Deep mutational scan, measured.
Amino acid sequence: RELEAFAERFKQRRIKLGVTQADVGSALANLKIPGVGSLSQSTICRFESLTLSHNNMIALKPILQAWLEEAEGAQREKMNKP
């Protein structure tokens, strides 16, 4: 249940930020998480549509959570600048 809720929230917030699935995939490489490079657009799509295996969903959740927090933080900074 929690994974499904996160996937839905992730998709809504990604769209609100105006970021494509492909952008998310390539931006993950910038997070410098050990062992994590970029991901394909189709992987992000399959995460959002819950068609990845349960284990893959569990593995990707903290990575996508980290990206989302960073992206939303950058958005807030941009909006707070005069």
Rank of each mutant, 00 (worst) to 15 (best):
Q21I: 13
E4H: 15
K11P: 01
F47G: 00
N55P: 15
F47A: 00
A5D: 09
F10G: 00
G35V: 01
L17D: 00
E69P: 02
S42Q: 07
E77M: 13
H54E: 14
Q21K: 15
R1T: 11
T43E: 05
Q12L: 08
L60M: 05
L68S: 02
A27F: 04
R14W: 00
E4R: 08
E72R: 03
A27T: 08
Q41W: 08
A29P: 05
K11E: 02
K78Q: 09
N30I: 14
A59Y: 08
F6A: 03
R1I: 14
I44M: 02
A71W: 05
L28T: 04
A74C: 13
I63K: 06
K78G: 10
R46F: 05
P62R: 03
Q12T: 11
Q21E: 10
L64M: 03
E70V: 05
E69M: 10
K32Q: 11
P62V: 02
G25E: 14
L64N: 03
S26A: 13
G25A: 14
R9I: 12
S40T: 13
M57S: 04
S40V: 03
E2A: 04
K78D: 06
T43K: 04
V24T: 02
L68T: 02
M79D: 11
G25Q: 12
A5L: 14
I33T: 06
Q65C: 06
N55E: 15
L28S: 01
A66V: 07
Q21L: 10
K78H: 13
F6G: 00
N80P: 15
K11Y: 01
S49T: 12
E77Y: 11
E48Q: 00
S42V: 11
P62H: 01
M57T: 03
I44V: 13
R9D: 07
S38W: 07
I33C: 12
N30G: 11
E70Q: 11
E72A: 04
F10S: 00
K16T: 10
S53C: 12
I15A: 07
S38D: 06
V24I: 10
I58E: 11
Q65P: 00
T43G: 02
Q75C: 11
V19D: 04
H54N: 08
A27R: 08
L39I: 14
Q12E: 13
G73N: 12
I15V: 11
N30M: 07
E8A: 11
H54C: 08
A27S: 11
G25K: 13
T51M: 12
R76K: 12
G73Q: 14
E69D: 13
A71E: 09
I33H: 06
L28R: 02
A5G: 10
K32D: 13
E4F: 09
Q41M: 08
R76E: 13
Q75R: 10
R76M: 14
A27N: 08
Q75G: 09
K16W: 05
L28C: 10
P82F: 07
T51K: 13
L28H: 03
E2Y: 04
N55T: 14
L3A: 06
Q21W: 06
E70L: 05
R1Q: 03
A66L: 07
V19H: 06
L3P: 03
I63T: 14
E69H: 08
K16Y: 07
G25N: 07
A22T: 08
L60I: 04
I44K: 00
L52Q: 02
K81L: 14
S38G: 05
I15E: 13
P82G: 11
G37E: 13
K16Q: 13
C45V: 14
Q65E: 15
Q65G: 08
L50Q: 11
D23K: 04
I33F: 08
S53E: 12
T43V: 10
R14K: 00
K78C: 07
V24H: 01
F6C: 02
I33D: 04
I33Q: 04
P34A: 12
G25C: 13
L17F: 04
F6L: 03
L39E: 04
P82Q: 13
Q65S: 11
K78S: 08
E2L: 03
K16A: 15
G25P: 04
G73T: 15
K81R: 15
G18L: 01
T51G: 11
P34Y: 03
G37Q: 07
G25W: 12
Q21P: 09
R46P: 02
K11H: 15
L68I: 14
P62E: 03
E48L: 00
G73M: 08
G73K: 09
L52F: 04
Q12V: 07
R13H: 07
S42G: 10
L3W: 03
K78L: 11
N80F: 09
R14A: 00
N80C: 15
L3T: 04
Q75A: 12
I33S: 04
S49D: 13
E4A: 08
M79L: 12
A59M: 13
Q65W: 06
V36Y: 04
E48A: 00
Q75D: 09
Q21S: 08
E2G: 07
P62N: 04
I58M: 10
L52E: 06
A7E: 00
V36D: 02
L17G: 01
L60T: 02
L39V: 12
E70N: 12
R76G: 12
S53W: 02
S42Y: 05
I15Q: 11
M57C: 04
E48W: 01
A5N: 15
S40I: 05
E77K: 11
L31S: 08
P34V: 06
T51L: 11
Q41Y: 05
L64K: 01
E8N: 15
Q41N: 06
R14D: 00
A27H: 08
N56I: 09
D23C: 05
A7W: 01
K61P: 00
G35C: 15
L64C: 02
T43H: 15
A59F: 12
Q12F: 06
I44D: 00
